[in-house]
Nucleic acid binder design. Structure first.
Length: 605
RNA sequence: GGUCCCGUGGUGUAGCCUGGUCGAACACGCCGCCCUGUCAAGGCGGAGAGCGCCGGUUCAAAUCCGGUCGGGACCGCCA
């Protein structure tokens, strides 16, 4: 499929005022341009030399058009065209012609025409590139990153960056129309006390001290509300020094929004409208509103995750009661020890081979579960399972009943501490959905997840920590860390968390109580959040907001499965920027100015 | 911090499990010649790697083992 085919590239708007003597972009020419004298410039995507007539495919960001050089019509042009190397930059002057009968190319938007060249200038000759610049040729990612500029020439990549631009432009005009103000916030700021690991920047003037790069503009946007800005948005780079994943990069872009004098419904309505607008403008797709809402507990209970993929079934059933006093001790003892037994039915997977099933057990283990019990339902109470002899007939029936398993289905059961059960089953459910091809294409299932807990127990810290952040408003007066709910909300799309936010605390007394639950001493509160609390003493409007991972939104809209593909110059999983070679060793002078000494790479704490 | 997968001409892969037949195969690209309507043009011919790196086992290593570097997926982590 030609990625340019259905795109409103907008370049046509520029025709007539293209710089550099161009009259058209390559992808713009159509049959109605026949007879026009045009001047084009671009890269030689391909050369087809017939000994006589020579064809060049000329590529720019808008598309490809065929240039033809005839030996009789223009001998000098023909000579140049015969020798030009792929990826060289050329300027072409010629006449647009409708192609001869039977030679149109229906696969190309410009396929009905060609440009008969009367002049060709080679502006820059190219060496043979390290990989072929074509969508169908997928070079190894490390090589693509090393020569990213070549990779970006591939129509697929160019189109992705242009779509990203369209998405950003749509979002900006959407917020602008609604009175939101784009305000920039500092990039060199204060280290965040909680949350992800910070990237630090040593200070030259304040020797011995460091700035942190922002993990998000969270506190600044709240201060903007105190500052009376009322409605703020920003499309801003954020940095978190945590290990990257396919859907996570340390340097990422956030769509950040904050409003004053609002309630949840204001945010929900606004954000739903925004997504409707973006999906319509970018994909021409109408998405349904309002988005369904799911309480956090239901998401965890039925899907094992706070970002459920609702495009397919296989919801979890709690089987703990069935196995509470079971003869199968592995399950019964888990229940007695406070654990849970949960499972779900994978339709039609009963016939899976032992090897495939062992793979599932491995998957469960890799996610921290003690194990996985599978049960292939053959008919009635007939099952194939490694623990079949330990299971009572009534238990098997009850499991099938609870999970909805029918003949031919495969029931997957995990018994462990609740969080491990959730993590393991969530992974298995996503895996099975893919393997069984249960993920419907072209569906956009947006979802609000709300009613989150306000606190969770931090094992490492040995104290209660905020689920979202310490400024999240509680849903009620209840501040008991075991039961308190928050006014937090997340947007989930097709099982991917796009973003989240909350109504913030604007009452100093409540903020104070939250800090107390978090175990912060008055000194710590002053040191870490003093500036915010001080601000709140001088008149703070009720406020709240939300933030989205723009890269993920672009990833989903462009059908990519990796955020690196929607970022122009991404880094590798180990943080190398292969194009420039960053990071690099600082010079002695730089270190001296900053008052720093480097440890040897081998000196690991 | 951990688990798993990958690394073979310029590119993408096969070969590796079951060492010798590999002086490494295929496709694309590249070079040369032929060819006036192709569009992943076509035909003929050619050059190009010693298998990421280091070490070990062995009569013998692309193949087995250890380490290391690089890439990726995932777990932990990501308020």
């Amino acid at each position: 499929m030609d990625p340019f085919a259905e795109r409103d590239v907008g370049m046509s708007r520029m025709e007539g005022r293209l710089p550099g003597g161009r009259t058209h972009m390559c992808g713009a020419l159509r049959a109605e341009d026949a007879g026009a004298r045009v001047e084009l410039a671009g890269w030689v995507a391909r050369r087809r030399d017939h000994g006589g007539v020579v064809f060049l495919d000329l590529r720019d960001r808008d598309g490809v058009v065929q240039v033809v050089a005839h030996p009789q019509e223009a001998p000098e042009v023909h000579r140049l065209a015969s020798g030009v190397r792929p990826e060289s930059v050329v300027r072409v002057v010629g006449e647009v012609r409708v192609r001869p009968e039977g030679t149109a190319n229906p696969n190309l938007p410009t396929g009905e025409v060609e440009v008969a060249a009367t002049r060709i200038d080679v502006l820059s000759e190219a060496e043979t590139p390290p990989f072929q610049v074509e969508d169908r040729v997928e070079a190894e990612e490390a090589l693509r990153l090393t020569y990213r500029y070549l990779d970006l020439r591939r129509p697929e990549m160019t189109a992705t960056l242009m779509q990203r631009h369209t998405i950003v432009a749509t979002i900006r005009s959407f917020f602008d129309e609604r009175g939101f103000v784009d305000v920039e916030t500092p990039m060199l700021t204060k280290s965040t006390p909680e949350g992800a690991r910070d990237f630090l920047v040593p200070s030259r003037l304040q020797r011995g001290k460091v700035y942190a790069l922002p993990q998000s503009p969270q506190q600044f946007k709240q201060l903007l509300m105190v500052g009376g800005i009322d409605r703020y948005y920003q499309i801003v780079r954020c940095l978190r020094d945590e290990n990257p994943r396919a859907d996570r990069h340390w340097e990422f872009t956030q769509l950040d929004v904050e409003m004053s004098f609002l309630v949840e419904e204001d945010i929900f309505g606004l954000i739903e409208e925004m997504f409707v607008r973006v999906w319509r403008d970018v994909l021409g797709v109408d998405i349904a509103t309002p988005f369904p809402r799911m309480p956090y507990d239901e998401a965890i209970g039925r899907y094992g995750t706070d970002r459920p993929d609702t495009r397919y079934g296989m919801l979890f059933a709690d089987l703990s009661d069935i196995f509470a006093g079971s003869g199968f001790r592995a399950f019964a003892s888990q229940v007695e020890g406070g654990g849970r037994v949960k499972g779900f039915a994978a339709p039609g997977a009963a016939g899976w081979s032992r090897k495939e099933l062992d793979g599932l057990v491995q998957e469960a283990r890799s996610r921290g579960a003690a194990g996985l019990v599978w049960m292939a339902v053959a008919g009635g109470a007939e099952v194939r399972s490694p623990v079949e002899k330990h299971l009572a007939v009534e238990e098997i029936r009850a499991v099938c009943e609870a999970t909805g398993a029918r003949d031919g289905d495969l029931v997957l059961i995990v018994a462990d501490q609740p969080s491990r059960v959730s993590v393991a089953l969530d992974g298995l459910r996503r895996l099975m959905a893919q393997r069984l091809d249960l993920v419907p294409l072209g569906r956009w299932e947006f979802l609000w997840v709300d009613r989150m807990p306000l606190f969770e127990w931090g094992e490492e810290e040995g104290k209660w920590v905020s689920v979202h952040h310490p400024f999240t408003a509680p849903a009620s007066d209840d501040l008991d860390p075991r039961s308190a709910r928050s006014r937090q909300y997340d947007v989930v799309l097709n099982g991917i968390e796009l973003g989240g936010g909350s109504i913030r605390i604007h009452r100093p007394d409540i903020q104070q109580k939250v800090f107390e639950v978090l175990g912060l001493s008055p000194e710590e509160i002053e040191e870490k959040f003093g500036h915010l609390l001080r601000a709140f003493r001088y008149g703070v409007p009720p406020h709240g907001g939300i933030a989205f991972g723009l890269d993920r939104i672009v990833m989903l809209l462009t059908g990519r499965d990796n955020v690196r593909d929607v970022i122009a110059f991404p880094k590798t999983q180990s943080g190398l920027e292969l194009l420039t070679g960053a990071p690099s060793v600082p010079s002695a002078q730089q270190l001296e100015e900053l008052g720093m000494r480097l440890a040897k790479p081998t000196d690991r704490p």
